[in-house]
Amino acid sequence: MAKTGLDGHWRGPTIVARALRDAGFEVIMIGMANTDDIVTSAVDEDVDLVGLNVGGHIDVAIRAIESVQRARPELPIFAGGTITPRAAKQLEALGVEVYPPGSQLTDIVDAAKRLTDKK
């Protein structure tokens, strides 16, 4: 899990990480990370799923997503945070599942299970 922006509000990603850990996932949190950090971590840690907390402009998230997809085309990605409805459509077009504020934790955990089983 990574935050794409340089904004350190941590409520969202920590709650999601806790729910995922409670469900048996091992979660690697790399905090505020730029595109290179995210790709490096996704490759080196051989992760099964990438979770992005998006707090800023959607183009920053898109750059990270496209870079991860180039490095590991099969790797599923999901995203949460303050993503506007219009930006959510842009992410969905890239095959990224979006969980905006107000999403249920059970839905996020179910998505993580589904996305990691699919491979």
Binding site: T4, G5, L6, N34, T35, D36, G56, H57, D59, V60
Partner: peptide, 8 residues
């Protein structure tokens, strides 16, 4: 770190 997120 800022250049990497210039749109933000």
């Amino acid at each position: 770190e800022v250049v990497a997120r210039r749109e933000d």
